[in-house]
């Protein structure tokens, strides 16, 4: 309400301005906070198929004894390498059928056809996104950057299993890797 005393009015105004300015600053910060929040959200929901980019530490023998022999899931591996690089990136077993709960190995090769050393990072993506939540990797070249010397072909093994809790209606899923160049000294922001 309008105050008669202009000094008091000024003070009251300043108080609200200060509060609103604080809200503005907080919302600006919130805009940036959305970045880590988004990652957390993706990890929880499988949004956008960003399969979790680290080894599962909490792997217990229990997880593996629960092999679901009643069904097999078709898993496809797709490899992309970012255009503009002299790499040949391929999945040696593009399609495998696995029982949920069963440990499995698949192999990938990266060939550097140039003569210069390449530092690469593979970025995973799973479709359908929810299925990514049930794909547990225990060993993967995608956990860290890889150094590939010029004219070298390197074979990598990825060890994984599917959680037996994988929803029954998912009987086909795809794991895609896109290979990007990184400069050897920085580590990529990994989820």
């Amino acid at each position: 309400m309008l105050k008669r005393d202009s000094n008091a009015q000024q003070k009251a105004n300043n108080k609200i301005v200060a509060r609103l300015a604080l809200v503005v600053v907080c919302m600006f910060a919130f805009g940036f906070a959305l970045v880590p929040l988004y990652d957390v959200f993706c990890d929880l929901t499988g949004l956008n198929g960003r399969s979790i980019q680290r080894a599962d530490a909490g792997l217990t023998a229990d997880d593996l004894t629960q092999v679901d022999n009643n069904r097999k899931v078709k898993l496809e591996f797709v490899s992309f390498s970012k255009a503009g690089h002299q790499w040949r990136f391929s999945a040696l077993e593009p399609v495998v059928r696995v029982h949920p709960g069963e440990m499995q190995n698949v192999r990938f090769t990266i060939e550097n056809t140039s003569s210069e050393t390449a530092f690469v990072q593979a970025i995973p993506s799973v479709s359908p996104g929810q299925a990514g939540l049930y794909l547990h990797k225990t060993e993967c070249f995608c956990f860290e950057q890889q150094k590939i010397e010029g004219k070298q072909k390197v074979e990598f093994v990825m060890r994984f299993y599917l959680d037996s809790a994988l929803p029954k209606d998912i009987s086909q899923m795809t794991l895609a890797y896109t290979l990007y160049a990184v400069d050897g000294n920085t580590t990529a922001r990994v989820n």
């Binding site: 970045v35 993706c42 956008n48 980019q53 970025i123 990007y180 990184v182 990529a188 922001r189 989820n191």
Partner: peptide, 18 residues
């Protein structure tokens, strides 16, 4: 930076969310 670039761990879809 790579907020929206998959190469650096970002995501172009996140841009759309923001």
């Amino acid at each position: 930076t790579s907020f929206f670039d998959a190469a650096g761990g970002g995501d172009p879809v996140m841009f759309q969310h923001i």
